[in-house]
Simulated scan of single mutants.
Amino acid sequence: MRQDGKIDYLELPGGDIDRVKAFYGNAFGWSFVDYGPRYAAFDEGLDGGFDADAAKAVPLPVLYAQDLEAMQARVEAAGGTIVAPIFAFPGGRRFHFKDPAGTELAVWSER
Rank of each mutant, 00 (worst) to 15 (best):
M1H: 15
R2C: 05
Q3K: 10
Q3A: 07
D4G: 00
D4F: 01
D4K: 00
D4V: 02
G5L: 08
K6L: 11
K6P: 08
K6R: 12
I7L: 15
D8P: 11
Y9T: 09
Y9H: 14
L10A: 00
L10T: 03
E11A: 03
L12H: 06
L12N: 02
P13G: 02
D16Y: 01
D16S: 01
D18A: 08
D18G: 07
D18P: 01
R19F: 04
V20A: 15
V20K: 06
V20W: 01
V20T: 12
K21L: 15
K21I: 09
A22G: 12
A22E: 10
N26Y: 06
N26T: 14
A27L: 11
W30S: 04
S31Q: 10
S31I: 11
V33T: 13
V33M: 15
D34G: 04
Y35F: 12
Y35D: 11
G36W: 00
G36S: 02
R38S: 15
Y39P: 08
A40P: 01
A41V: 07
A41P: 00
F42M: 09
F42W: 08
F42I: 09
D43V: 04
D43H: 13
E44F: 14
L46A: 13
L46S: 06
G48I: 08
G49A: 12
G49Q: 05
F50N: 04
F50S: 10
D51S: 13
D53Q: 14
A54P: 00
A54M: 10
A55C: 07
A55L: 14
K56I: 10
A57G: 15
A57N: 13
A57Q: 12
A57D: 15
P59N: 03
P59A: 03
L60V: 02
P61M: 00
P61G: 02
P61I: 02
V62T: 04
V62L: 03
V62Y: 06
V62D: 04
Y64G: 01
A65H: 01
D67H: 07
D67Q: 05
L68S: 02
L68I: 04
E69L: 10
A70Y: 04
Q72N: 01
A73Y: 07
A73T: 07
A73S: 12
V75W: 01
E76H: 08
E76S: 09
A77N: 02
A78F: 03
A78P: 06
G79V: 05
G80L: 03
G80Q: 01
G80H: 00
I82N: 14
V83T: 12
V83Y: 01
A84L: 14
A84S: 10
A84K: 11
A84H: 09
A84F: 09
F87V: 13
F87Q: 13
F87P: 03
A88D: 13
F89I: 02
F89G: 06
P90I: 03
G91S: 13
G91V: 08
G91H: 03
G91R: 05
G92W: 12
R93W: 13
F95T: 01
F95G: 00
H96T: 14
F97C: 04
F97Y: 05
F97I: 05
K98A: 08
K98M: 14
K98E: 15
K98W: 08
D99Q: 02
A101T: 15
A101L: 15
A101H: 14
G102P: 06
T103C: 13
T103W: 08
T103F: 13
E104Y: 00
L105S: 08
A106L: 07
W108C: 15
W108K: 11
S109F: 04
E110S: 11
E110Y: 05
R111S: 14
R111F: 11
